[in-house]
Design a protein around this nucleic acid. Structure first.
Lengths: 190, 190
DNA sequence: GTCTATACAGCGATAGAC
DNA sequence: GTCTATCGCTGTATAGAC
């Protein structure tokens, strides 16, 4: 295990802070102070704030791809989709506090009309494409993207309300409902 | 029809700008300039930015209550829930651009850890309570709140993805899916 | 690579003239 | 009730010493 570089430490910290407090609401000073490095040093590694955002999005893409690769390595498509649905419960603590890391970033950048908006959307699309593939493998080729978007909408909606109300029971109920829905999809031919 | 007061004009404009660009991203200068009034005059009507936010939330609560009152005046509970579901399509243009006015505000204030967070949540709760009442009237007393939350989660999830992808067809499909779901709820006894 | 010091713009907020 | 002028703070970003 090699020691992380300063650059890597900055990206990891920015990733966390952008998630917990938002991109706009996180300043250079906050990131630098929380790492114990100076603002000046900061600019040696990243010329602008957008460059950090870019690196954070790239890091998230990388980590999410690894997660999907893990799921791909084991189980069938139905089991994999279930892993995605259950992610809401696995990350429940964070989601109740900060919402979905993907959804909240897309929403914030859309609102700021930010240039890297489409890059953030790539994160959402990563899951969309992956889900679509799983539904295709299940024999739902014709409406695979429709079903993928439905699963995404479910997870985003639950995340928004879970954060607003801090309600674990609600998450549990909705995940169970989605599990039941997935059963009907799995056991139906097109 | 009486001429709107300066205060009313400020609230209306802030309401619009907070929705379109977010609370944090909207400055006094932006609001004042867009109304053609000076920053100084601004502070005669509102001492702090939070006071404006408070007024905007109150205004939204008022307008949404009026909408629900209209729905209550005509049709049965099933028809009313359908009106709520179809709101996503009625306001499609705005939602594709700016998301849900209720959800995005709750998400932003949660993230800012803002003092008026709970007041924004009241907006969500207004719809939650109203939906719960409709499901109770449908004879689903036991799980009325569960169903209400499910409908809310649906609308929030669709709004997030509709904004990210600017996809009208997706909204249409999800609304149709929700309509079908409502049929199964309506025609099932507890 | 890391630091201190600083420039400069924009923010929320205040004082006081009209 | 509306204006101009200005303060103090924080934000992003830069320059230059070590």
């Amino acid at each position: 295990m090699t020691e992380p570089t300063t650059r890597e430490r900055i990206v990891a910290q920015a990733d966390r802070l952008f998630y917990e407090h938002g991109f706009e609401n996180t300043s250079f000073a906050t990131i630098a102070d929380s790492l114990g490095i100076s603002r000046g040093n900061f600019y040696y590694h990243f010329k602008t704030k957008d460059e950090i955002l870019d690196a954070v999005i790239a890091a998230r893409l990388h980590s999410r791809r690894q997660l999907l690769d893990q799921w791909d390595a084991a189980g069938g498509p139905a089991e994999r989709i279930r892993s995605f649905i259950h992610l809401l419960q696995a990350n429940q603590g964070k989601i109740l506090q900060y919402g979905c890391p993907v959804g909240t970033l897309c929403t914030e950048l859309a609102r700021l009309d930010h240039g890297l908006r489409e890059d953030a959307n790539q994160l959402m699309t990563l899951f969309r494409t992956w889900l679509r593939r799983q539904f295709t493998l299940l024999g739902r080729k014709a409406d695979a993207d429709d079903l993928a978007m439905h699963v995404l909408a479910f997870s985003q909606g639950v995340a928004v309300l879970a954060q607003a109300y801090h309600d674990k029971q609600f998450v549990r109920r909705e995940v169970a409902r989605m599990d039941a829905w997935l059963d009907t999809v799995t056991h139906t031919s097109t």
